[in-house]
Amino acid sequence: MTVRAAETTTSAWIRRFHPAPAAAARLVCFPHAGGAASFYFPVSRALSPDVEVLALQYPGRQDRRTEPCVEDLGTLADLITRELGTWCDKPLALFGHSMGATLAFEVARRLERDGVRPCALFASGRRAPSIHRDDRVHLSSDAELLAGMVRLGGTSAQLLEDPELVGAVLPATRADYKALETYRYAPGPALHCPLTVLTGDADDQVNLDEAAAWAEHSEGEFDLEVFPGGHFYLAAQAAAVIAAVRGRLATEVPGLAR
């Protein structure tokens, strides 16, 4: 992988809400299924200027809504890994929630394969990649898919009463679920970077055993952080989650204060 100093401009893939050229490290944030880069705007604001947040924008949503969605998680990981080659001139950490956690893991594997070791991987709200459930949400009807989004807590029921908004978010959400649910973990070398797993104690998408199973996927230091709440626990627990992220990064990155 070619590593060069990052430019101030962003690509279609990356949103740099609070540019911080002097930051000690960068944190790449991977959205959940149906999610967008804007989900991580508060994280960027909270960590800047010590840590520069790069929030990923997948195709098929918001300002990329005219682009075809990527329905294969491995392909998406390949595209993102290639994009991040520009940003590896300083310590790079990865944070993903739900689908984003599995995707961040696959990107971390590719980065390490290419000689770039992330300084930390944060996997939130997702069971270990090696644990498979036979989920088929992407085959649901539109009404079932929308009801599931509301039930998980990441989307307001009131917003989904807007037909225009539904038409904008539904295709990307379905494509993301297809990418996640057709993903199959391919055995390979464990990561070497520190791995922090974060989960809600009432999340029916991942139980504590499934969260703890992430430990087998890295030879680096492993931490499991459990917070009150369901699948989108991190909305109500934002301050505590950000503190956990900052604390781990401060351990790994010289000069970064807690």
Rank of each mutant, 00 (worst) to 15 (best):
A25Y: 03
F17V: 01
E225C: 13
A172V: 15
A24H: 14
E225A: 14
D142E: 15
A77K: 01
F95L: 08
A186Y: 02
F41W: 12
T182C: 11
L54N: 08
D78W: 00
A215E: 14
R61Y: 05
E219S: 15
A147W: 14
R61T: 01
P189F: 07
D134H: 11
P31E: 11
R248N: 00
I14D: 00
A179K: 03
G153Q: 09
T86G: 14
E161M: 13
E144T: 12
V166D: 12
A104M: 00
A36Y: 06
Y177M: 10
P228I: 06
G220F: 01
P49Y: 03
F41M: 09
E181Y: 08
T10I: 05
R26T: 11
A202P: 12
A22T: 15
T75P: 00
V51H: 04
G85T: 07
H231T: 04
G167E: 15
L180D: 00
H231P: 11
G230N: 07
L121G: 03
P129V: 05
A101D: 01
H32L: 10
A120P: 09
P171N: 08
V253T: 02
V150S: 12
M1E: 02
S48Y: 01
Q237D: 06
D72T: 00
A36F: 13
D89N: 06
G60P: 05
S48F: 05
H32D: 10
V51K: 02
P91M: 04
L160T: 09
A235N: 15
R126D: 02
V53S: 07
P254W: 00
A213N: 10
P118K: 00
R136P: 08
A157G: 12
R109K: 14
A23N: 06
R184F: 09
G154N: 07
S140P: 01
R126N: 08
Y185N: 07
P254L: 01
P129W: 01
F227C: 09
R136F: 10
G74W: 00
F41R: 15
R64I: 09
L56N: 03
R113G: 10
M99F: 00
A243R: 10
L79Q: 11
P68S: 11
D72N: 14
L195I: 11
L47H: 04
V166A: 13
P91Y: 05
V137R: 15
G255Q: 01
T196D: 09
I242R: 11
Q237S: 11
L256E: 05
N207V: 04
L73Q: 00
P118I: 00
S124F: 02
A22I: 03
A243G: 04
E52I: 07
T9G: 14
A147R: 15
I131R: 10
E52M: 06
P194I: 01
G100Y: 01
S38I: 12
Q62G: 03
E161F: 08
V137L: 15
L224I: 05
F122Y: 15
L165C: 13
L152C: 13
W13L: 11
Y177S: 04
V116D: 02
P163Y: 03
L224R: 11
A108H: 04
L79I: 03
H192M: 12
R64E: 10
F232G: 12
T8C: 10
